[in-house]
Structure formats: C-alpha cells, structure tokens
C-alpha cells in the first residue's frame, strides 16, 4: 500500500518536475539551456545526502539494538544513496562539459560527492566480503558511521584546497526568478519521494530474501 502511494506520488511529481523544467522555468542568462540540469542535479545531491544520513542513523541503531531490520534499512538506503550519487556525478559532468569544456572539475561539492561515492562503494563491498552476513552487517554499520562523520572533514578540506587553487565555481548567481525556486523545490520533493519509494521497495525485497533464507534453513534442518 505504502509503496503504491509512493509510486503514484513519484510519478506525478516526476512529470510535474519535468514540465516545470522544460516549459515553465526561464532559461538562465549566462549558462543557457544546459543550466536546466541543475534542477535535478541539486535534488540528487540533497537526497543522496539524506540517504547517507539514514544509513548513519540506521547503523547506530543496528549496533545498539542488533535487530536485522535496522541493518536492512541501512543497506537499502546505502544502495539508493550510491545510485543517486552516481547520477549526481553524471549530471554534474554533463553540465560541466558545455560550460567549461571539461567533463570534470574539482569543484568542492562534486569532489566531496566523489569521495562519498567511494566510501559508500566500500560500504557495499565490505558487506559482500565479510565471511558471514551478521559480520557483514556489523562491519558495514561501522563504515556507515565512520564514513558519515568523515563527510564534513572531507568537505572542509576540499573547500580549503579549492580556495587555494581557484577553479571554476559551478553556480554563483542566485535563483533570480521565483519560478526557478519553485522548480527546484518541486524537484527536491520529487527525488525525496523517489528515494522513499526505492527505499521501501528495497527493504521489502531484502526482507523477502531474509525470509526465504530462513525457510530454506528450516527445511534443511528438518
């Protein structure tokens, strides 16, 4: 039921967001049409950060309570977070190419996202490499906590680094037009709904897997 509602909400919001981006919002003066990617680029960043925050909270809760459900929530959220971060990095590249003629720029936020992406890839790998799933859950929780606390230090260091070696800043001008703000806000909610939908789906899927494993085990021991 919840996932049905979220599915409907995501669809409506996605269509609205696309309509706003392509038909309503005015073209930004200096960057032109390509700036419109901004309206998805930023929400992806926000929501991947939200996803990693959920990983952090669920990891702390898992180590504290040791209930499988917290671990399932953490790993599901990390997966969605990695997907969103990947899309954020790709959309950043698509945006950077026509503006500065390069696919990649060591802009602080992009670079922080790249480091974050690597940390959460490691989060998923640790789980896969652990010798038992209970261990994997525990180790992943530790990485989920440590990785999240590392983010502010990473961001600070990269920002300080870029101010010493100035490079193109991706977006300086404010959102001059109220329609721009509206589009951005709608898009942020769009991706939050999409995040919630994917999260609920993944959690349900993982719980199913868990049940199946337990049943199999039970059948074997009979």
């Amino acid at each position: 039921m919840l996932s049905r509602i979220l599915l409907a909400l995501s669809l409506v919001l996605l269509v609205t967001s696309l309509a706003l981006i392509f038909f309503v919002v005015p073209t930004e003066r200096t960057m032109g049409v390509v700036q419109r990617i901004f309206y998805w680029h930023v929400p992806l960043a926000w929501n991947s950060f939200l996803a990693f925050f959920v990983v952090f909270i669920a990891s702390v809760a898992y180590l504290w309570k040791r209930t499988k459900n917290w671990d399932i929530l953490a790993s599901a959220s990390a997966e969605v977070g990695v997907v969103f971060t990947t899309l954020f990095l790709i959309s950043g590249s698509i945006w950077a190419k026509p503006i500065w003629g390069v696919w990649w720029t060591w802009e602080p936020r992009l670079t922080t996202a790249l480091v974050l992406w690597l940390i959460y890839i490691a989060y998923l790998l640790v789980r896969a490499y652990a010798s038992s799933s209970e261990r994997g859950a525990r180790f992943a929780a530790v990485v989920g906590i440590v990785g999240f606390l590392d983010v502010p230090i990473v961001f600070l260091s990269i920002t300080l680094w870029r101010t010493q070696h100035p490079s193109a800043v991706i977006f300086t001008g404010g959102l001059a037009d109220p329609r721009m703000i509206l589009t951005l806000v709608v898009s942020i909610f769009t991706f939050t709904a999409l995040y919630a939908l994917l999260l609920v789906q993944r959690v349900a899927f993982k719980k199913g897997e868990e049940d199946l494993r337990r049943l199999k085990r039970l059948a074997e021991s009979e």
């Binding site: 038992s132 799933s133 494993r213």
Partner: peptide, 14 residues
C-alpha cells in the same frame, strides 16, 4: 559456571 537457555546462531546456522 551457570548457563541458562544459551543459544548461538551463525547467520542461520544454530
């Protein structure tokens, strides 16, 4: 030593 209702499961293996 006193042990009461002790269980230990490794993943799904009891």
């Amino acid at each position: 030593i006193e042990v009461r209702k002790l269980t230990r499961t490794f993943d799904d293996f009891p």
